[in-house]
Design a protein around this nucleic acid. Structure first.
Lengths: 343, 343
DNA sequence: GTTGGCACTCACGCTCAGCGAGTGCCAAGT
DNA sequence: ACTTGGCACTCGCTGAGCGTGAGTGCCAAC
């Protein structure tokens, strides 16, 4: 009983099951693959695979279905990321090129990914903590309120209103604010958010003693704002693809929809992906830490502008998923969106 | 056969059906309501109601179910918006008070509405076209690119990168930009976007002939940006509530999820609501222009900061819905979110 | 216009048998 | 030691048949 053939059988089972979504038996396996052996041999192999916990039979007299472990082995050793055709690559690039701003890039990316994979696509907004400051702007909002607008290198813009002890909207306030603006930007531009916060620490010393108090309080608020753990945004698309699969299989979509609404969960999903060294990370069924997502798999990767990886994106679907093509799509989309963001 | 009693029967049918989600027959109706007449009489009334198209029988020997027209009549004449308890109102207010910025307000609002109604909540971002300019900021992004940041009264911030024919990042460019910034804001602040665009038309004339070209092109781009039809953002929550209802009823959630992904559709849904004069608009089943949403109802209303109504929010659910309480929730949430935004 | 009575209609749930895909095991072959 | 054909067996699925009961429509009497 050759090890090699047994794995070939596993591969065939996974492929057939993914395509037909029905448990696959020894006979139908022979019809669709040239294994060069008889049905009985295949049956023996299947029994061995079941023994190893790689496949399982839903009922006594039904075919076999891959287990999570079976999919895992398949992904790790039995398949390679299916290359995309130049035409597909061109279509992706062209579609993403059309975006006009960051929101549009993100929106187009998730939709594209959802329609390519026909699954739920998830994408994290370019992370702020790993971005660098492009510009910081101050806008007086009234006698004691000041809006701080932070623009980072990925094009993302964040605003925040802070309280100031003195009036900055009067004309001398305006002048002072202009000076603060210039100095803050001279110091912070190009730095990461945390670094920028550090650089600003001693800024107040450069000002007139009279203004120092005011500047110090503004800078303090700004530092807080820069360091503060920011809400990371997540966008999704293709949730209706869940309905398609939901009808034929034991994937009750309720819990999945609930998980998808919890953006914290999604962020963790994309976040833990980063810990793996592979370019594209795959988490299968129970490998997934969240109840409700235990019969789904997540295929994700990182993307970023230039050499900086700033956030994650991926797709979520039933464990019975075409991993090679899904992985190819995720990888390709990540590559192209990174290219767009780098410009 | 009194008209009055017939309507009482309709009301009872709607209430029972909403509660039990099972077709209601003459007998079970008598058990649950004191109508003071016999089953036979109720049957006669039901036959009449069916004749009028207000109720229908799924099969020959089943109870009756309200039709869209039946619900319509119920909403228009047989029910009133159920008042909320002070405790509920307080909880709403308290939950929304906790929001730290506009994104957070919107996020909390949809989630709140979804959990109150246990349905899908939809909320449009405060519309830009009906907002007023609070501040316009210019940030040089390189030799020939300028980022325009627009802050409106609802706190929403929009950015846009425009191409400029001359370099504005040099030091004299900075000075000029400061002047432009001051004049633009003096003219535009407090005005609606379209008005602001008009006010800016002649701004270039105030500048040195040497700079006039440059200013004109900047102003021109700005006008374009202000007038341009902007993408209106829509946020939703509670999609998992669809799964709950999806199991027991002929609401195939696939098409609904698809419709929910098309933000254009959602905007139209909230938009057409405005045409009705009522405070809370209800669109029932086929009154709804979109295929796939024909067995759902939309309960929506407008909200806004102060007296200005700037956008819509509402919920979407199966036609078999508790209209009075849903309407109450939508109205209450709209009231409170408006109050928050006004501050 | 209301009521009680009555025959009728179906959807639903149940059981039961037949079918067939698929299995496990065994004895024979290589 | 592995492979193969054969064979009995399992068991989920399907569809037919049947009883039940909620619900109806109609009618004659009040």
């Amino acid at each position: 009983m050759s090890e090699e053939r047994r794995l070939a059988v596993l591969r065939a089972i996974v492929q057939d099951y993914v395509q037909t979504s029905e448990p696959v038996g020894s006979k139908s396996l022979l019809d669709r693959h040239q294994l060069g052996v008889s049905a009985a041999t295949v049956r023996n192999d299947m029994a061995a695979l079941e023994e190893e916990g790689l496949i399982a039979a839903p009922h006594t007299s039904a075919g076999r279905v891959p287990t999570d472990a079976g999919y895992r082995l398949f992904v790790d050793r039995l398949s390679s990321v299916k290359p995309m055709t130049p035409a597909e690559r061109a279509a992706i690039a062209q579609f993403l090129e059309g975006a006009v701003d960051l929101d549009d890039v993100v929106d187009r990316t998730v939709r594209l990914l959802a329609s390519l994979t026909r699954q739920v696509a998830v994408m994290q907004y370019p992370s702020l903590t790993r971005s660098t400051v492009r510009h910081i702007e101050f806008v007086p909002m009234g006698p004691s309120r000041l809006m701080v607008v932070l623009i980072v290198n990925t094009g993302r813009v964040e605003q925040r209103v802070i309280e100031t002890p003195h009036d900055l909207s009067a004309s001398d306030g305006e002048a002072l604010l202009g000076l603060v603006r210039a100095k803050v930007n001279a110091r912070a531009a190009g730095q990461r958010l945390v670094e920028a916060a550090a650089s600003l620490a001693s800024l107040a010393d450069e000002f007139d003693p009279a203004d120092r108090d005011l500047v110090r309080s503004v800078v303090q608020s700004l530092e807080d704002a820069l360091v503060e753990e920011r809400e990371e945004r997540v966008v999704l698309a293709g949730t209706s693809n869940l309905a398609r699969v939901g009808t034929d299989f034991p994937l009750s979509i309720g819990p999945v929809l609930e998980a998808l609404e919890e953006h914290v969960v999604l962020l963790k999903l994309l976040g833990t992906a980063r810990e793996t060294s592979d370019a594209v990370s795959v988490r299968i069924g129970h490998e997934n830490p969240f109840a409700g997502l235990q019969s789904t798999s997540v295929v994700s990767t990182e993307y970023g502008s230039g050499s900086e990886l700033v956030a994650g994106l991926g797709v979520l679907g039933p464990t019975r998923m075409d991993y090679p093509t899904t992985m190819a799509s995720v990888r390709a989309v990540a590559t192209y969106v990174s290219r767009i963001l780098a410009q």
